[in-house]
Write a protein that binds this DNA or RNA. Sequence first.
DNA 1: CGCCAATATATGTAGCTACATATATTATAT
DNA 2: ATATAATATATGTAGCTACATATATTGGCG
Lengths: 168, 168
Amino acid sequence: MSIDNEIQQHKWESFRQKAVVNTLFTCRAIETAGAAMLKEHDLSMPQYNILRILRGQKGKPASVKLLTERMLDKSSNASRLVDKLLEKNLVVRVTCPNDRRAVEVSLTPEGQAVLEKADADNARWLPHPKVFSEADAKLLSDLLDRLREAIRTNHPDFAKNREQGDIP
Amino acid sequence: MSIDNEIQQHKWESFRQKAVVNTLFTCRAIETAGAAMLKEHDLSMPQYNILRILRGQKGKPASVKLLTERMLDKSSNASRLVDKLLEKNLVVRVTCPNDRRAVEVSLTPEGQAVLEKADADNARWLPHPKVFSEADAKLLSDLLDRLREAIRTNHPDFAKNREQGDIP
DNA sequence: CGCCAATATATGTAGCTACATATATTATAT
DNA sequence: ATATAATATATGTAGCTACATATATTGGCG
């Protein structure tokens, strides 16, 4: 079903406006479906995101700072998310011996197990390539990259989170 | 900048996975920039969404039910959002005379004025067609429609919010 | 060494979604 | 007509982002 029907709006000011709104709308749809999938593993999407980043460290622990940098939501509160994962015994957190300000977070065996199970569901949950081809997916991803760039650079008045060197 | 650099992930399981993650990531970027723009008008995106739906009623009031149906976030809490708008005197809310369960929400002149100012900024904030063409925007929007559909239909196990007639 | 800025994390608050439940009102069935 | 189901809204709670601020620790400079 197209977005026109789903939010009962059939007149758009431009396709650019429609594309922006559709990105937000599709994001919600993905989150809703993804959250339902992860709920079976008692995980939220940001928590799952953290577990995956930790695995990407291949044994090395990750600081909260590193987690924040790599998370999808940069201003997510990795500190409190780690708290939640700690309560479930999916991660351990120890003070970094070299820098007592920092903290070293790493997966527990239980955390690895949960992650693997969630990954299996996640793979099943993604669109099948016959329904949404890899070529279309690449095209979509590239268009999204360009849309972000356009929003960032086109109207510096409102563009926060600029790159270094932009107008201050 | 491509998503690969922005979240420091360069290995993807598939372009489908990358497209899904990029949709979430781009959604955040849009929300961050949009929120910054709307903040100057003391509005949040859901509040702005409601004001626009109310204007779309062309004078007719809208019930909370209608607002919920047309909002981008279906499970947003229109009731509480209307509360916020009420406090700012941007809308009025009166019990519906025909159905005393329902409520009629409509814009105040002040609400209309705020909406017009926000709209002006919103138009400036959207990507310029020379930076992101209307054709690309249409292509993007269509791909997003198809991605949602693929996620909804491809794996009924996790697909919530199904259309009527789907597998129960 | 002692002071101060920078860094890493934690905490507090407001606004949001998601989901469950409560309340008031209307429609329906017997 | 009364009980019950359905509807429309409101309220409560948990988890999230966004932003501001607090705390602890480190590094650098005099």
